[in-house]
Amino acid sequence: MDAARIDAFEAQRPRLLRLAYRMLGSVAEAEDAVQDAWLRWTKASERAGDEVVQPAAWLARVTIRLCIDRLRSAKVERAAYRGPWLPEPLIEPLTHDPVERAEDVSVAFLLALERLSPLERAVFLLHDVFDEDYGSVAETLGRSESAVRQLASRAREHVRDARPRFSVSQDEAARLATAFAAAATLGDMAGLSALLAQDAVLVTDGGGKRKAALRVLAGREDIVRLMEGIAWRGQTAPPESLRTARINGYPGFVLTLRDGLSTIAFQPGCDGLIHAVYIVRNPEKLGHVAGQEGER
C-alpha cells in the first residue's frame, strides 16, 4: 500500500474511533472495529486501485457496518450480563472538536443509546452527532433516505432527555466530586446526603467479576444506606492510589483499591448537587485504563 493511502486512513482514525466507541460503548471493541476497517481498507486498496475516491465516507461506512454486526452478535451476551451494565470508561481531554462535546460521551447519553436498535443508533450518531446529511447516511447504511429519517426521528424520542440541557462549570463539577470523595473517606453520611439530589442514582458495574451492587440504587436515601452498610462492614479502606480524571466528560477518579482498579464518575446538576454516580469495577472494562496508569 502506498503512503498516500496509509495517510488517508490515519487521518480518519480518530474520527472512526470516536464513532465506534459511541456505537459500542467499549474502548477495546472500538479499537478492534477500527483495526478490522483498516484490514478491509488494505484489501480494497489492493483490489480497486484508485477507485476509492472518498476515503472518509468509505471508512465510515465500513466501520459503522462492522459495529452493527458486533452489536447484533453481542445481544445475547448483553442480556445475560450480571448486574447493571455501564460503558467502558472513556478518559480523555476535552477538546474544541464538536464531536467531543461532553454530553456526547456522557454515561447518560451512552446508556440512552443502548435503548436503540443498532440501525437507529447508527443513524442518530451519523446524522445528529457527526453531522452527516441524510443522503450520506442512507448511502452508508444501504437504506432509503425516507427510512433513515424515520429511524432518526424514533431515535431522538429515546435520547431526547439524555443530553444535559444546561452547562455546569468544570470547577463546580470538580468541587462536587472532591467533596463526595472526602465525605465518603471520613464516613460523613450527612455530608454525603447533602451532596446528592433527592432522585440521584448510583450504578455499579462489576460484571459478576468483582463485588458490586446488583441493581441500580435510586434515591438519596438508598445510596446513603449502601454507604452506611459499607462503612459498618469496614470496607472503606483508603485507596492505594487515586487521581482525578475526566471520565466520559464527568469529573471523577481512577482508584487503585485492594482488589484492583476502579473508576468513579459524578454527573453534576445545575442545582449544585450530584445526580448520578457511575462506578466501573469490572476488570474486563478497565484494561485500557490500567495501561494508561502504567504509562504514568
Rank of each mutant, 00 (worst) to 15 (best):
H96I: 08
T95L: 12
P84D: 12
E103M: 06
P98E: 13
P84F: 00
S106Q: 08
R82H: 12
E103F: 03
H96L: 14
V105Y: 02
V99I: 14
S106W: 00
R101C: 05
A80D: 13
E100A: 13
W85A: 11
S106A: 15
E100C: 10
E100F: 05
A108C: 06
P89F: 04
V99C: 11
Y81W: 15
D104R: 01
L94N: 04
A80H: 14
D97I: 14
L94R: 13
P89C: 07
L94P: 05
D104G: 02
W85I: 11
Y81M: 09
Y81H: 15
S106P: 09
L90V: 00
E100I: 01
S106T: 03
A102R: 09
E88K: 01
D104V: 01
D104K: 02
E92S: 07
T95A: 11
P84V: 00
F109G: 00
P87R: 02
D104T: 02
T95Q: 07
A80Q: 15
A108R: 00
V107H: 00
P89M: 05
E92K: 12
F109A: 10
L94D: 09
A79L: 14
E100N: 15
P87M: 09
V107A: 08
P87H: 06
S106Y: 02
V105M: 09
P84A: 09
A79D: 15
L86D: 05
F109H: 09
P93C: 05
V99M: 06
R82G: 06
P84N: 11
P93N: 11
A79S: 15
L94W: 04
R101N: 11
A102T: 08
P87Y: 00
A108Y: 00
T95F: 12
A102I: 03
E88F: 03
R101S: 11
P98I: 13
L94Q: 10
A80Y: 10
D97F: 07
E100W: 04
Y81A: 13
D97H: 09
P98S: 08
P98K: 12
P87K: 00
G83V: 11
W85S: 08
P89T: 02
D104Y: 04
A102D: 11
E92F: 05
E88A: 08
V99Q: 06
I91K: 04
E103T: 01
L86I: 10
E92P: 00
P93S: 11
E100H: 15
R82K: 14
R82A: 15
I91M: 07
P93M: 09
A102G: 06
E88L: 04
E103A: 12
W85K: 06
A102W: 02
L86W: 08
E88H: 05
A79N: 09
D97E: 13
E88S: 06
E92R: 13
E103P: 03
E88R: 01
G83Y: 09
F109Y: 15
I91P: 01
A79K: 14
V107M: 07
E92D: 08
V107N: 01
G83D: 13
D104Q: 07
V107D: 01
P93V: 10
A79T: 08
F109N: 02
E92W: 04
P84G: 09
V99R: 11
I91D: 09
A102E: 13
P98D: 10
A79W: 07
P87D: 08
A80R: 15
E100R: 02
L94Y: 03
D97A: 14
V105E: 06
H96E: 14
L94I: 05
R82E: 15
